[in-house]
């Protein structure tokens, strides 16, 4: 029973999340000619100048750094789309489903490495920050509604980074509820001998939220 919860172990670092996001596929427009690449993670190319092709983000960034391509920003990363999303996020307590799981990491990587390829970069960036803030505020207010009758929490459309931020809190809170709720752990000095029936009787009735 000496085991401790290992939250440090299960948490993904920001770098690891970025690593995962780097496998997302993006469109690039190469400006060089290169044979197809047969990589462990898949086959990509051939690369022909001005012909759009799909590659993972890390490959796109590597080429972009050497000035060998331009990256086509994903469709959701335009001022129009993001304005819509921001509006939707503000109007409803639900999380919008129009953003990819790794939207924070993808947009950050693109801003760091391919800023010139993003039209209205400044606007896009501030829209994404606003969306992040609104979404995170919603997550926080959602968490306030937590109570001891919760045995599982269902979250729609939460992004990877948001998950990572709330994970330690939700995990520990649920665990605490679970612990205090389970009558199994509360010793009853009078009825130690027939503990089982009593446990069944006092079973916590918990419902799934939302």
């Amino acid at each position: 029973m000496a085991g401790q919860s290992n939250h440090e172990l299960s948490l993904f670092s920001a770098e690891e999340l970025e690593f995962i996001a780097e496998d997302e596929i993006v469109d690039i427009v190469p400006n060089l000619k290169m044979d197809p690449l047969c990589l462990i993670s898949g086959d990509f190319g051939p690369f022909t100048p001005q012909i759009v092709t799909q590659v993972p983000l890390w490959l796109a960034i590597a080429l972009r750094r050497r000035g060998k391509c331009s990256i086509v920003p994903p469709q959701w990363m335009t001022v129009d789309k993001l304005t819509e999303v921001l509006e939707a996020e503000r109007n409803s307590q639900e999380m919008s489903e129009h953003l990819p799981f790794h939207y924070v990491e993808i947009s950050r990587l693109l801003f760091d490495h391919a800023r010139d390829n993003i039209p209205d970069a400044y606007m896009v960036r501030s829209l994404i920050e606003d969306i992040r803030d609104v979404r995170f505020h919603k997550v926080e207010t959602d968490l306030e509604a937590f109570d001891g009758r919760t045995f599982a929490v269902k979250i729609k459309n939460l992004s990877a980074m948001e998950v990572n931020i709330v994970r330690p809190f939700i995990g520990r809170a649920l665990q605490a509820f679970y612990k205090h709720d389970s009558s199994d752990l509360i010793p009853d000095p009078e009825r130690v001998s027939d503990r089982r029936p009593q446990v069944a009787h006092n079973a916590p009735r918990r419902q799934l939220r939302r």
């Binding site: 045995f151 599982a152 929490v153 269902k154 979250i155 729609k156 939460l158 998950v163 939700i170 995990g171 649920l174 679970y178 709720d181 389970s182 009558s183 199994d184 089982r196 446990v199 069944a200 079973a203 916590p204 918990r206 799934l208």
Partner: peptide, 25 residues
């Protein structure tokens, strides 16, 4: 079957929709 609390409480069946995140024991 949620193995939550006592074994004899079999009423708590749980379902999962695809691509929705759940925090669960």
């Amino acid at each position: 079957q949620l193995e939550d609390g006592p074994v004899d409480d079999r009423s708590k069946l749980f379902e999962m929709e695809p691509d929705v995140l759940y925090f669960i024991c």
